[in-house]
Every structure is written in structure tokens, then in C-alpha cells.
Design a protein around this nucleic acid. Structure first.
Length: 415
DNA sequence: TAGGCCATCTGGTCCT
DNA sequence: AGGACCAGATGGCCTA
């Protein structure tokens, strides 16, 4: 049907395609008369990589199974001709299987050089081919780049506390969640440093040791997770000079006005509507001000058997800010308790408590940048599209936390 | 049906 | 020249 070389493929393109390029379009056009470059609902092509959730598969697709490999590595020798290309390949772009062996008897092309060199004239068709080739390569690179970005996001999702199996955080939710989650843990470590050293929290850390506050624990569910970690902070104050003062992280402090409380059993750190509690005996919690939360078991439940029975308990073991959830049987049921999440939190907080790095399958090699400082309540000012300038963020020394020395061993480990 | 989310294409810019 | 990055445009799918 079509030639086996890329040039022949281009000739085919010339005959049936518009000047716009793209293998998807070309292939789609080759099998239908559709003029759109995106497969329509009835014409969709299954390349073996499900890109969108369907009715049959409501779960948001996982873009990159581990065995997924990109077929395009930059050279057109890799691109299949059409008669070689089959749907269900991992990539939507045709890939050539093997390079055509060179004929040793074929005379080499001769080029002139120096002043006598003659620039080969390119016909409009050849110019179009060249442009089309560049465009297709650029499209492949861009597609590949976005795939890698999505893969990185998927990896990030995998190390965040997960939700029920039928949901998947969107991209923006993933980033917000990760930001808040890391910050919550770094706050926990900050507090633990103070406890272990026996010193009260330093003033410039904005953590003031105050009166006792009841530990709050409850079962975590999907909505609570979203509420806690994924919703953007809406509490902002226009300072009148075009900049914004953001109260992210401290929108709902404890009654004493502080975001930190030390109790006889541990510490509580409030981060926005998230409260992280770390019990001296274990039993660490992440809770929301709505009364939802997640807890890890106290270390006194040391062996596996007791742990198992512990997180199957039908009722929450801790009181909550209010009783909206604590008296609700469903939030105490195992259906709302994900063992995997439990282990994630447990390990993260246990290691946070112990101040040591995790060394397991989730450990990554992303190191902190020594000397850099993290400002957690910075705000992007969309009004003038200038980012990371001090004028556009709420800048306050109290909220300045150097997390580098902590996260290299702990935060980076499991999160 | 509108809106959200997403993948892809595309052209521009910057850098090597 | 070519690659990386970015943002706008477009269209498909799903959900409320």
C-alpha cells in the first residue's frame, strides 16, 4: 500500500494530507475521511495506551505502566512506515522496526565543496517535507516531554497518601497536596527538634509552646483528604499596594493564637485546616479542623498482630474537634481505612519522630539544595505575571523555615 | 449542556 | 540547526 521508507511515507503524506503535520492526523486521515487531527468519539484509535477514562474503565488511567517505553528516540530511522505500523503500539507514532541495510554497491553521493560547491536546489515540495519532518520530530519530542512530566506526576501521586482506588488526583491537586503534605511533615519535624532538644520553639519559627490542647484523631476519607490537602487556600489579604498577604498555613490557629501547642503527650502543629499531632508514645495524627483525620498507632501496639487489630477498630479512638464524624459509624469502618495509607503515614511519622531516614522501596534520591530556604506561604501573583519576587509574596521572617537539613533524611524518604 | 480535565498540536523563544 | 520549554488552541471524555 505504501512505501517502506520515510521519504515514501512523506510522499504519501503529500498526497492525502494537509500541510499540517502529525502522525496522528496522517494516520487518522489514512483510515477515515475525518478532517480533525484528534480521533473522534467513533473513530478513536486504540494504540494500546489508554489516555482517557472511559465508561468501561472509569478509573483515571495510569499513563505509564512500568513497562512503557518511548519508541521515538529522536531519529527518523526509528519511525515505522505506514505498512509496518500497527495500532496497539505503545506510542501513537509509527516506528520503524529496522534500518534498511545499505547496498555496498550503491555509489556514494558526491558533494562539491569550497567555492565550487553548489547548493542543492530544494523544490517547494522538498521544503515542505523538511518542515514537516521538523514539525513531526518536534511534536514527538513535545509529546515525550509531556509524557515524562505526567510520569513524574504519577510517581508523585504514588508516594503521596492515596485515595480510594477509583479516584486519582488531578495534576494541580497533586501538586497542592504534595506541597501541603511536605510542609505538614516538615512542621512536625521542626516541632520534634524542639522537643528532643528540650528547648521551647524558637520565636522566629512562629511556634510558641502554649497550653495543652486535646489530641484529635479520626478516620480519614477521600473528601477529608481533599479538604485537607488539595483545596487552595482562599484566605488572602490585599495589602493595598498590589501585593497579597497570604495566611496559608495559619488560617485556623489554635485558640491561643498560636499554630503550635505542646501537650503532656506530644505536640500539635496547625497548618491551615490541617493539624499534625505527634504523640510522645507514637499515635501520630493528621487531622482537619472539620474533625476528619488520619492517625498512626501508638508504638505501644508494637507487634503486627496488635497493629492489625488496632486499625480495624470500628470506632475512632480519639476525640475530634467536633463530633460530626466521631459518632458516625461509617468513618470508623474499615472501608474508610486504607492500610497502605496507614503504612505510609506510619512510616513517615515514625521516622519523623525518630529523626532518621527511611531505607525502603519508597526512598528516593532527590536531595535538598543545601542553603536554600523554603517559604511556604509564598503566593504567585497572577495579576502581573511576575513570579518569585518578594513584592508579590507575603514575606515574613517568622515563617521562614530552612528545611534542608531535615528533609534530606526524612521528608525525602517516604514522601 | 456547561465546565473541568486532559492529550496533542503548534509556533514562538531561548539556549547550545 | 536543533532541542527544550512554554503557552495558546483545539477537541474528546466525563460529570454534575
Amino acid at each position: 500500500m505504501f512505501g517502506s521508507t520515510f521519504d515514501e511515507f512523506c510522499d504519501f503524506n503529500d498526497s492525502i494530507c494537509s500541510n499540517d503535520s502529525g502522525f496522528e492526523k496522517t494516520y487518522t486521515d489514512s483510515i477515515s475521511t475525518s478532517t480533525t487531527n484528534t480521533p473522534t468519539k467513533n473513530e478513536s484509535i486504540d494504540y494500546g495506551l489508554s489516555l482517557t477514562p472511559t465508561k468501561d474503565n472509569p478509573t483515571r488511567r495510569r499513563l505509564f505502566p512500568e513497562e512503557f517505553e518511548y519508541s521515538i528516540q529522536g531519529n527518523f530511522e526509528d519511525i515505522k512506515s505506514f505498512n509496518e505500523f500497527q495500532p496497539h503500539d505503545n506510542t501513537s507514532t509509527p516506528v520503524k522496526k529496522e534500518r534498511k541495510p545499505k547496498d555496498p554497491n550503491k555509489p556514494k553521493r558526491k558533494y562539491s565543496n569550497g567555492k565550487t560547491r553548489v547548493t542543492r536546489c530544494k523544490s517547494p515540495t522538498q521544503i515542505l517535507k523538511i518542515k514537516r519532518n521538523r514539525r513531526m520530530k518536534a511534536n514527538d519530542r513535545e509529546r515525550n516531554r509531556m509524557h515524562m512530566l505526567n510520569e513524574a506526576l504519577d510517581r508523585l501521586r504514588c508516594v503521596l497518601p492515596t485515595f480510594p482506588e477509583d479516584t486519582k488526583l488531578t495534576k494541580i491537586e497533586t501538586l497542592r497536596f504534595a506541597h501541603n503534605y511536605i510542609f505538614a511533615l516538615s512542621q512536625t519535624l521542626d516541632a520534634l527538634d524542639n522537643i528532643n532538644s528540650g528547648d521551647p520553639p524558637s520565636e522566629n519559627s512562629s511556634l510558641a509552646c502554649e497550653q495543652a490542647y486535646p489530641l484529635t484523631c479520626d478516620k480519614m476519607n477521600k473528601d477529608a483528604f481533599r479538604e485537607i490537602f488539595s483545596l487552595p487556600n482562599k484566605i488572602e489579604e490585599n495589602k493595598g499596594d498590589g501585593s497579597f498577604r497570604s495566611f496559608q498555613g495559619f488560617s485556623k490557629p489554635f485558640p491561643n493564637g498560636s499554630n503550635f501547642l505542646q501537650t503532656s503527650e506530644g505536640v500539635l502543629i496547625n497548618v491551615g485546616n490541617v493539624t499534625v499531632s505527634v504523640n510522645n508514645k507514637g499515635g501520630n495524627c493528621i487531622t482537619s479542623t472539620t474533625g476528619s483525620g488520619f492517625f498512626t498507632n501508638p508504638s505501644s501496639y508494637g507487634d503486627d498482630l496488635l497493629q492489625e487489630s488496632y486499625y480495624q477498630r470500628p470506632q475512632p479512638i480519639c476525640s475530634s474537634y467536633n463530633n460530626n464524624y466521631s459518632n458516625n459509624e461509617q468513618y470508623g469502618s474499615k472501608d474508610y481505612f486504607n492500610e497502605k495509607n496507614y503504612e505510609l503515614f506510619k512510616n513517615a511519622f515514625e521516622n519523623a519522630k525518630n529523626g532518621r531516614a527511611l531505607n525502603n522501596e519508597f526512598t528516593n534520591n532527590y536531595g535538598g539544595c543545601t542553603g536554600q530556604t523554603y517559604f511556604y506561604n509564598q503566593r504567585y501573583d497572577y495579576s502581573n505575571q511576575v513570579s518569585f519576587t518578594q513584592n508579590n509574596y507575603y514575606y515574613d521572617e517568622r515563617y521562614r523555615h530552612n528545611i534542608i537539613y531535615r528533609n534530606q533524611g526524612v521528608v525525602n524518604a517516604k514522601i
